[in-house]
Simulated assay, not measured.
Amino acid sequence: MKIILVAVPGSGKSTTLKFVKEMLPDIAIVNYGDYMLEIAKKHYGITNRDDMRRKLPVEEYRKVQELAAEEIAKLPGDVIIDTHASIRVQGGFYPGLPDRIITKLKPDAIVLMEFDPKDIMERRAKDVGLRDRESESPEDIEMHQLANRYYAFAAANAGECTVYILDFRRKPQSKPFEHAEIAAKFVVDLIMRSRGSSK
Rank of each mutant, 00 (worst) to 15 (best):
E139M: 09
I87W: 01
Q145G: 05
K126Y: 07
M113V: 15
K63H: 08
D78Q: 10
Q65G: 11
G92F: 05
V128E: 11
V128I: 12
I72A: 03
K106Q: 14
P98Q: 08
I102H: 07
D108M: 10
I141M: 02
K63I: 05
A154G: 08
V79T: 02
F153Q: 06
V79I: 10
G129T: 08
L75W: 10
K74W: 12
I81F: 03
E114K: 15
D127E: 08
G77V: 04
P95D: 06
R124Y: 01
E139V: 14
R88Y: 06
M113L: 15
M143V: 00
R62H: 14
M143N: 13
P76D: 04
N148S: 15
N148H: 13
I141K: 00
V111R: 13
F93D: 04
Y151K: 06
K74E: 10
I101S: 00
R124A: 02
D108Q: 10
A154H: 07
E60T: 04
L67V: 15
Q90T: 12
A152S: 14
R149A: 14
S135R: 14
R62E: 10
E114D: 08
A155Q: 07
Q145L: 12
R149E: 14
I110K: 01
G129P: 14
L105W: 02
I102P: 03
F153C: 02
M121K: 00
I141C: 02
I80K: 05
D127Y: 05
L67I: 15
